[in-house]
C-alpha cells in the first residue's frame, strides 16, 4: 500500500489525530466485514454459529469445498467472468472515445449530452428490467452472456465516459499538437502520445466497469435463467442454505474482486492523482 499523503507542515495536533482516527475507522469499515466473512468461511460448519469466536479460526475448508462442488457454482462463476469481461471491454471501447470527444471537440449540445450521461443512472433498474426482459426475449438476447453484458455496459458506461473525459482533459492539447507537427496524424498521435499517458486511468475505468458488472445482481437475476452470474445464482440458491454455506458463497464472491483491485491499485491511485508532468 502507498503511504499516507504528506501532511501540510504546521497542522495542529487535533487535525492530525482526527485524520488518523478517520483512517483507522475507514480501514475497519472495510476490513472487519472481510475478516468476518473469510474467518467464517474457513471455520468448521459447527463453529460458525458457535460463541465465543476464536480470533484465528482453525482452517477448515469443508464449507468452501462443499460450496465449490455445489452444482452450478463453477458455471455461474464462469458466466460472471465472461459477462464482466465483456462489459469491461465494451464500456472502455465505447466510453473512451466518447470521453475523448467530450474533452477535445466542441459540438452543439455538449453540456446537455454530459448531463444526459449522468441522467441515465437516474432511471431505477427495476423499472427498466421488465420491458428489457421482454425486448430481449423478442430479439433472442435473453439468458445470454452477451445480452446481460449489454445491460451491464449501460450501467458502467456513464462512469467510463466521465472518467475518461476527465483523463483526456488533464492532458494538454499541445502534446497532441506537438505530435501532429512532428509527423503524426490524429490516430498516430493518440496511440503514441495520448494512449500511454491515459493508460493507467483507462485501466482504472476498465476495472470499475468490471466490478460494476461483477457485483450487479438485479438485472442478472431478471434476465438470466440458465446462464446465471454468480451473484444471481447465489441469491437464488443460498437463500435457504445453512449459514456456513452463505459465508463460503460470500467469500467466493468477494475474493476475485478484492484480488483484482489489489493488483491494479496503483492505477487506481494514479487515477485520482494523475501525474503526467
Amino acid at each position: 500500500m502507498s503511504t499516507a499523503p504528506n501532511m501540510v507542515v504546521g497542522q495542529s495536533k487535533a487535525a492530525r489525530w482526527s485524520f488518523n482516527i478517520a483512517v483507522i475507522l475507514l480501514c475497519l469499515w472495510v476490513l472487519v466485514p472481510i475478516y468476518l466473512l473469510i474467518s467464517n468461511a474457513l471455520s468448521a460448519p459447527a463453529d460458525v454459529n458457535g460463541f465465543p469466536k476464536k480470533l484465528l479460526p482453525s482452517v477448515n475448508t469443508e464449507s468452501v469445498e462443499f460450496f465449490i462442488g455445489f452444482y452450478g457454482v463453477t458455471k455461474a462463476l464462469w458466466s460472471s467472468v465472461q459477462v464482466a469481461f465483456l462489459t469491461m471491454v465494451m464500456a472502455v471501447l465505447i466510453g473512451a472515445p466518447a470521453g475523448y470527444a467530450l474533452s477535445r471537440f466542441d459540438f452543439r449540445g455538449k453540456s446537455l449530452f454530459r448531463i444526459m450521461i449522468l441522467m441515465t443512472r437516474a432511471f431505477p433498474l427495476p423499472l427498466l428490467a421488465l420491458p428489457m426482459a421482454i425486448m430481449f426475449i423478442k430479439v433472442g438476447l435473453d439468458d445470454t452472456v452477451f445480452g446481460l453484458a449489454i445491460v451491464h455496459t449501460t450501467l458502467a458506461l456513464p462512469f467510463a465516459v466521465l472518467i475518461t473525459y476527465s483523463l483526456f482533459s488533464g492532458i494538454p492539447i499541445e502534446l497532441e499538437e506537438a505530435a501532429w507537427t512532428l509527423g503524426c496524424n490524429r490516430l498516430q498521435a493518440f496511440i503514441k502520445v495520448i494512449f500511454p499517458l491515459v493508460l493507467p486511468g483507462i485501466t482504472a475505468s476498465a476495472i470499475f466497469a468490471f466490478v460494476t458488472s461483477w457485483n450487479e445482481v438485479f438485472a442478472a437475476a431478471v434476465l438470466t435463467i440458465e446462464n446465471r452470474t454468480l451473484p444471481a445464482f447465489l441469491l437464488q440458491s443460498l437463500d435457504d442454505a445453512p449459514l456456513h454455506l452463505k459465508f463460503a458463497g460470500g467469500a467466493v464472491l468477494v475474493l476475485p474482486a478484492l484480488l483484482f483491485l489489489f493488483f491494479v491499485r496503483k492505477y487506481l491511485f494514479s487515477m485520482w492523482g494523475i501525474a503526467n508532468r
Binding site: 499541445e174 499538437e177 508532468r277
Partner: peptide, 8 residues
C-alpha cells in the same frame, strides 16, 4: 509556449 515535451 508550455514546451509540450512528452512526459512518458
Amino acid at each position: 509556449q508550455n514546451y509540450a515535451v512528452f512526459p512518458h
